[in-house]
Every structure is written in structure tokens, then in C-alpha cells.
């Protein structure tokens, strides 16, 4: 813990800002709904698109609901869904990459060709097709977002794993007669965990943007549930008057993704791979 604290202190300013934003949004996702001043769906203001006031810190939305309460609950959906999807994408992609690295060219070739094919479908387009085919319940959205970003993680993890598989210490392990599973899990995986964590952060950012984008289009999280993207969508009629109800959730998404990006950049891993 002391080590982590010292590392945080050694970060450049941008990294500290990023770290603070990430911790802030994690805390909001965990505890935010408990702090909400009003119930999420309650109509509490007489006016729609109120400006900020002592009663409603972020004003009211298009139906006169409290924006702050809805934002606190929406953040939990956005952060929770994206974190789960990013975790699923990273573990699946990495597991497949390790299989390819220790499985020889018979496994590696077809798997890599297949992933190359998937990666040449733009991610937003791919997820739109998936949503059209399967629908967009919360569970399906999680799977769709994860599936969309597996190929990107696979590509990076495979490049790392194939390099490590050629190293002397892995050859020694092989000569010792260790099984493929042991080589993948105990020899290769521990040495690629650092770049993989950075890649996890990037996947998380991509998935937050993808899911908010889908919700913004009305194809993501469905009412009565609402993530931050849904909040932007439902208040779009307030755009003409510059309502806080539309700015607040959009800025919330941006601070979350920018925070993760700043943190990854400061830790010093140059993210390579397909952009969003």
C-alpha cells in the first residue's frame, strides 16, 4: 500500500489528475446511489430544465427529476457495465492469445486469421449489427461490448505472448517437460501483466464510449434503467437552452474517460492497436 502511495506521488501532474478522476468515479459508482438526495425516478421539481440551485445541485431534467440523483445512478451503470465488459474482453482475448502462443501454428494460424477478419469490421458498425440481431438487454450489451473488443486485446496479447514464448527461460521450462498450460499460466502470463493492465484501461475507455454512444442513439441501456449516455439522450431537447441536464452527464463521461487516458499515459505504456 505504501508502495502504491509512493508511486502515485511520483506521477506527473497529469497522471495525478487522472488518478484522482479514476478514484472519484469508482467511488461514485460504488457509493453514489446511496448519496443521492432524491429517488432516481421521482418528479421533484416544478420546472423542467432548471438551472442549479441549493435544492438541485445540477438542476432538473426534461421531466423535472433531480439530475444529480440520476447522474449518480447512471454512473454506476456506465462504470459497472464497462468494467465488466472490459474485464470479459481482456480475459477472453488474453486466454485465446496464450492458447495461440503455446498451441503451435495449427492453433495460431486459424485463430489469428479469424481475429484479423473481425478487427477489420469497424467496432461501432459491428456492435450496431449485433444489437440489431440480438437486442440490447443489460446482459446482452455487456456481451456485445466485450465481443467487439476481444480482437483488439487478442492482437496485443498475442504479440506479447509470442515474443515471451521464444525467450530462453520458457525454452528451459519446455525442456524441463512442463505442460503447455503451466507454461502459459506460470511462465508467460506473469511477464505480460503490466502492458495488459494498460490495455485493459484502454478497452475500458473504448467500451465506455461505445456503450454511451449506443445509449445516446437509443440502442443501449433501455428505460427505466439509464446510464450516462441515456441521460444525454433523454435531455437532448434541452440543448437549445443549454440545459445543465444535458451538459452534466456528457461532461461526466468525458472526465471518466479522460481520467483513465491520462493515468495510462503517465504510467508510461504507449497504447498501440486499433482506436475506437
Amino acid at each position: 500500500m505504501g508502495n502504491a502511495f509512493q508511486r502515485a506521488k511520483a506521477l506527473p501532474l497529469s497522471g495525478k489528475v487522472g488518478l484522482a478522476l479514476v478514484i472519484f468515479w469508482l467511488a461514485v459508482a460504488l457509493f453514489g446511489p446511496m448519496l443521492a438526495p432524491y429517488p432516481v425516478g421521482a418528479f421533484v421539481a416544478y420546472d423542467v430544465f432548471d438551472a442549479q440551485s441549493a435544492k438541485h445541485w445540477l438542476g432538473s431534467d426534461y421531466l423535472g427529476r433531480d439530475v444529480l440523483s440520476r447522474l449518480l445512478s447512471g454512473a454506476r451503470y456506465t462504470v459497472g457495465l464497462a468494467a465488466a465488459a472490459a474485464l470479459l474482453a481482456s480475459t477472453t482475448g488474453t486466454a485465446l492469445a496464450l492458447t495461440a502462443a503455446v498451441g503451435g501454428s495449427k492453433v495460431d494460424e486459424p485463430l489469428s486469421r479469424f481475429m484479423d477478419m473481425l478487427i477489420s469490421i469497424p467496432s461501432k458498425i459491428f456492435s450496431l449489427v449485433l444489437v440489431a440481431a440480438f437486442g440490447s438487454s443489460l446482459g446482452l450489451l455487456l456481451l456485445i461490448a466485450a465481443f467487439t473488443y476481444v480482437p483488439g486485446n487478442y492482437r496485443i496479447a498475442r504479440a506479447l505472448a509470442v515474443n515471451l514464448a521464444q525467450m530462453d527461460y520458457v525454452q528451459v521450462a519446455r525442456a524441463r517437460g512442463e505442460g503447455r498450460f503451466h507454461i502459459a499460466i506460470a511462465e508467460i502470463l506473469p511477464n505480460m501483466i503490466h502492458p495488459l493492465l494498460a490495455d485493459f484501461g484502454l478497452r475500458f475507455v473504448f467500451i465506455v464510449l461505445l456503450l454511451s454512444g449506443l445509449s445516446f442513439l437509443g440502442l443501449g441501456v433501455q428505460p427505466p434503467d439509464a446510464d450516462l449516455g441515456s441521460l444525454v439522450r433523454e435531455n437532448i431537447s434541452g440543448l437549445g437552452e443549454g440545459a445543465l441536464a444535458i451538459l452534466a452527464p456528457a461532461v461526466a463521461i468525458a472526465t471518466l474517460t479522460v481520467g483513465v487516458n491520462l493515468l495510462i499515459d503517465a504510467i508510461g505504456f504507449s497504447g498501440k492497436g486499433k482506436g475506437r
Binding site: I246, V251, N261
Partner: peptide, 22 residues
């Protein structure tokens, strides 16, 4: 670094607020 992580609808919203509302 920040711009690549900002959702399109925030950029669009801010653009509308500046150029067509204000």
C-alpha cells in the same frame, strides 16, 4: 490525449451551445 477520449456528443453539444445558442 483528452480529445481522443471525449465522446462525440459532448463535442457536438458544446459546439451547438457556442455557435448556435450563444
Amino acid at each position: 490525449l483528452s480529445m481522443v477520449a471525449v465522446p462525440e456528443f459532448l463535442v457536438a453539444t458544446i459546439a451547438v451551445l457556442i455557435f448556435s445558442v450563444k
